[in-house]
């Protein structure tokens, strides 16, 4: 069971949370949105191997929605942040992870 850090309650067990899908997918306005853009909003997700920004809800805790960056291979959470905060630079975070890994390899 993962340990997930709620931005408000701190580290809490995974069973208190719900994953709410990919984050930063803006809801289009009804006017001026093409069918293709609407279909993309509804149905297309990035599903990366690596870092993903996701929506989570601490449903059995403070009940707040928040965002998190998680690595889809290792399941490690890299960062959590509040709804409305800008999307972190995933490429930069991935580079930090790689550098950290290299440093640990070198230090061993």
């Amino acid at each position: 069971m993962l340990l997930i850090t709620c931005p408000i309650c701190g580290p809490r067990p995974e069973i208190e949370f719900r994953n709410m899908g990919e984050a930063h997918i803006a809801r289009p306005t009804p006017e001026g949105t093409s069918d293709d853009d609407m279909a993309a909003f509804l149905y297309l997700r990035s599903n990366p191997k690596g870092l993903i920004a996701e929506r989570w809800r601490h449903v059995h805790g403070c009940a707040r929605f928040f965002n998190a960056v998680r690595h889809t291979v290792t399941d490690k959470f890299v960062t959590v942040y509040e709804v409305g905060a800008p999307k972190p630079d995933l490429a930069a975070l991935a580079a930090d992870l790689a550098a950290d890994l290299a440093a640990r390899e070198a230090g061993r």
């Binding site: 719900r18 929506r55 709804v83």
Partner: peptide, 10 residues
């Protein structure tokens, strides 16, 4: 949950 989602995030 659906209602809270729109209130908290939209």
């Amino acid at each position: 949950s659906h209602m809270e989602d729109y209130l908290q995030t939209e």
